[in-house]
């Protein structure tokens, strides 16, 4: 088995200091679905004490969370030159 952490370790990223996706924390706290926790192919959404944290460092830029999130997720592509660098896309 390859954990998602190990698989993300195979991907190369240039990480911006500012996240390009920002969950709206007040809405996440009352969200009963929390689809992001299982739908993100990179498992970048984590829940802790009801709060949802997103780690943009390993974002694969697919947009699945944008489509699936029932709330209005603040979603953008990373800045030019930043983000994921696929080599075998």
């Amino acid at each position: 088995m390859e954990s998602i952490e190990n698989r993300l370790g195979l991907v190369s990223f240039t990480v911006d200091s500012e996240p390009h996706i920002k969950p709206k924390s007040e809405k996440c706290e009352t969200c009963s679905l929390k689809i992001c926790l299982f739908i993100c192919p990179a498992r970048l959404y984590r829940e802790e004490d009801g709060k949802v944290y997103f780690n943009h460092e390993g974002c694969l830029e697919c947009g699945t969370c944008r489509i699936a999130c029932p709330e209005d997720l603040d979603w953008e592509y990373p800045k030019g030159g930043y983000g994921v660098h696929y080599q075998f896309g």
Partner: peptide
């Protein structure tokens, strides 16, 4: 990938990338 069918097709390979897209 852990299914018998896939496991035998991929045996000995070295994973080099993971990606996702819509």
């Amino acid at each position: 990938r852990s299914h018998r069918e896939l496991a035998s097709l991929l045996k000995g390979g070295s994973m080099i990338e993971y990606s996702a897209h819509l």
